[in-house]
Design a protein around this nucleic acid. Structure first.
Lengths: 157, 157
DNA sequence: GGGGCGCTACTCGGATACTGTATGTCCGAGTCGCAGCGG
DNA sequence: CCGCTGCGACTCGGACATACAGTATCCGAGTAGCGCCCC
């Protein structure tokens, strides 16, 4: 089981967008990260549908963040790209077979599903506690404080 | 992104095995849960390779837990079935493109990868805090204390 | 009658097809900027 | 000289192929029990 690469690209793209005042085209974002432009565009569409970025058509069009970067969590992006469905989906096999339970006695989720759900909630909770703004700060600090300035400069060029 | 069904089947199978003193064949486990026998067998092989269950050949052969059920966590099973690889794998796109960093300045993992790793650790930690024995108790309590006894009876028949 | 041997039936194990999701790409719909024209 | 209009170029958006991982299956390898034969 692997998370889509689109998650990584989307997160880096969001960080980049957080440094831009204007709209940035998918073409240009793809150029910055050296990734297939059309495929990145597909993922940006998903972000647009999830109201994480807003798109603007036309010659000077592109994408911009729909909200302040502090208000966009990693969970928002992961759910937008991945569909927001649970990693573990209970097939209710407890209702099948010779010892199968009757559906009316299955009001509560299966104990296995509950445990998996609890773990997944821990994951989602951790994801939602970090924002795109936090990422930008962390990346900038890793570079000694030059990375985000470089991005802003490159965006203007 | 979806976790393999094999995880669900394996967990339920482990709970069943925890109620048996002898070995149980894949055929019989599949019958209990009404799932494809050959496919379940494939997953049981994975559990065997991970030393979660031990297999015994021969006419009265089958599988049994290799350790006490208290010593088998959900994480062990998930890793065995799924391969134990990280959900999020950093492609190091920070090293690419016009603003790409030099490899020597990438000793630490990317900030995005760190955040994703932290969340994943929370997930794995939650998974490792629940054991197969815990599951058996929870399932039994959900049924009012009859489920595990029914399983033991069915296994002997 | 007792012990050893061979057969059979049942098990696991890995190699082999098939299906669905993720990956990657393309062309059409829409919109804004700019140039040209008329007033 | 200023405003309007038409064109062009660039953008996003969804529909279309391809590659890989998950799903499902089968047949071969191995072992334990049982019956048979020999002593």
């Amino acid at each position: 089981m692997k998370l889509s690469n689109g998650v990584e690209w989307s997160l880096h793209s969001c960080v980049t967008l957080s440094q831009s005042s204007g709209a940035v085209s998918a073409q240009r974002l793809a150029e910055l990260h050296q990734i297939p432009p059309a495929y990145l565009a597909k993922h940006l569409q998903a972000l647009s549908r999830a109201n994480i970025v807003s798109s603007v058509h036309g010659q000077i069009g592109g994408y911009r963040l729909a909200r302040p970067p502090e208000a966009i969590s990693l969970l928002d992006v992961v759910d937008a790209i991945d569909g927001g469905e649970a990693l573990y989906r209970c097939m209710e096999i407890r209702q099948r077979g010779p010892l199968g339970l009757a559906p009316e006695s299955c009001a509560r989720p299966c104990a296995v599903a509950r445990a998996m759900r609890t773990a997944e909630d821990a994951w989602r909770n951790a994801l939602s506690s970090t924002s795109v703004a936090d990422l930008a700060v962390a990346i900038d600090e890793d570079s000694g404080g030059t990375a985000m300035a470089d991005v802003r400069r490159w965006l203007k060029a």
